[in-house]
Computed example of a mutant assay.
Amino acid sequence: MSEIIKVKSLLSRVEVKEWKSVFAGIVFAFLWSSASTATKIGLVSAQPFVISIFRFLIAGSIMLFVSHIVLGNRMPVKREWIQISIYGFLNITFYLGLYVIAMQQVSAGLGSLAVATNPVFIAMMSAFWFSHRIKFKNILSLLLCFMGVVMAAYPLLQNSYATPFGIIVLLISMIAYSLGTIYYSRVNWNGLNILTINGWQTILGGVFLLPALCATYESDKNNFDTSFWTSVCWLAIPVSIGAVQLWLYLLKSNPIKASYWLFLCPIFGFLIAHFIMKEPITFYTVFGVILVISGLYIVQKKSKS
């Protein structure tokens, strides 16, 4: 009888863990895909680099306060500062700096769709970088995702919801993010806490962006109104902190299953943009999302085998 009770208790704990993962995955996908719409709202009131600097300052300060003051984690030392600086330049300055520029000229839904293609870029770039053989599945997944983005963008280009320049900058920003991810995964962090790494790379990435802000700043184009602060606070706290921590939780629980939650991002992204920004959802949108999800499924299926 005691063995039966133990088995039931174990099954109950497993079930609770599964439900936690499902809840975390859904919330992650919603928060991650909401970044595009939040950015579009902020751009109504301020220049892109102004939004970015405030976002990074708030998010980085909160993470460092929790990491060093609340949790008492150690500071980075010696070479770790260089590693964090490189990661911050790729993941914050380059990626998010270009991303916020692109969002001036593409729809929020399209921005979410492009972000969801990152696993494909990472898989392809890893193969090139480390001289791995590129399989047919990798090429097929990249083609499907590319076709999906083009398909979803087609009616948006016609209706001024996107420009070719915006799409190009958006894709370059995805490449920058993929480079940052690969770099992060290959570096030895010597047990440095993830919150410390994220906090300092966010702050340093913002510092590296300051010259661009100074060169482009125009005071009459920035209104620090409700829309601005709503956008910045949402991007800083729920997205930069909340979504990232949920993603790390999902990766720790099951890296393969975690990647599948990216499939929800394009769906949530277009729905959020439709209801908040009144962006259109057409046959092209639906078919483009299906192509991207198919491409993501192929590359994730490959990683499982």
Rank of each mutant, 00 (worst) to 15 (best):
M63K: 05
A59H: 00
N91K: 05
L71Q: 10
I139T: 15
T37W: 05
I41S: 05
Y184V: 14
I293S: 04
L71R: 07
R13E: 13
P255C: 08
V14D: 15
G166N: 02
Y297G: 15
A114P: 05
N254T: 13
A127M: 14
A215P: 03
F54L: 12
W32C: 10
L113D: 05
S178H: 04
Y297L: 14
G72F: 07
M151G: 06
Y177N: 13
I267L: 06
Q105D: 13
I92D: 05
L90P: 09
D220T: 11
L235M: 11
A212H: 06
V27K: 07
F128Q: 12
M151F: 09
M75K: 12
A46C: 07
W229T: 03
V289H: 00
R133W: 09
M174I: 15
T196A: 13
G206L: 11
S34H: 00
A258L: 02
L248Y: 11
F268Y: 01
L11W: 11
Q47P: 08
M277P: 04
T216C: 08
L213Y: 02
I267P: 00
F89T: 11
T285I: 06
Q105T: 10
S185I: 14
G191C: 04
F287T: 11
Y260E: 14
N190F: 12
F165W: 13
L90D: 10
A152G: 09
V149E: 05
T39P: 02
A24W: 03
R74I: 12
K137I: 15
L98A: 04
S240Y: 05
G25K: 01
S112L: 03
C233P: 05
L264Y: 04
M125G: 10
T226E: 08
P266E: 00
A153H: 00
L96R: 10
W129P: 00
S305H: 12
N198D: 11
V50F: 06
K135N: 14
I26V: 13
L204K: 10
F224T: 03
G25E: 08
Y161P: 07
S12N: 10
G111M: 05
I139Q: 02
Y184S: 11
L170N: 06
V50Q: 04
V292A: 10
N188M: 15
A273F: 06
I134G: 09
F228C: 01
L179V: 10
A212N: 07
F28N: 01
V100G: 00
A123D: 07
T230Y: 11
L235R: 05
I267N: 11
E80I: 09
I92W: 05
A153S: 11
L264Q: 06
S45Q: 01
V66M: 02
Y260T: 12
I139R: 12
A114I: 15
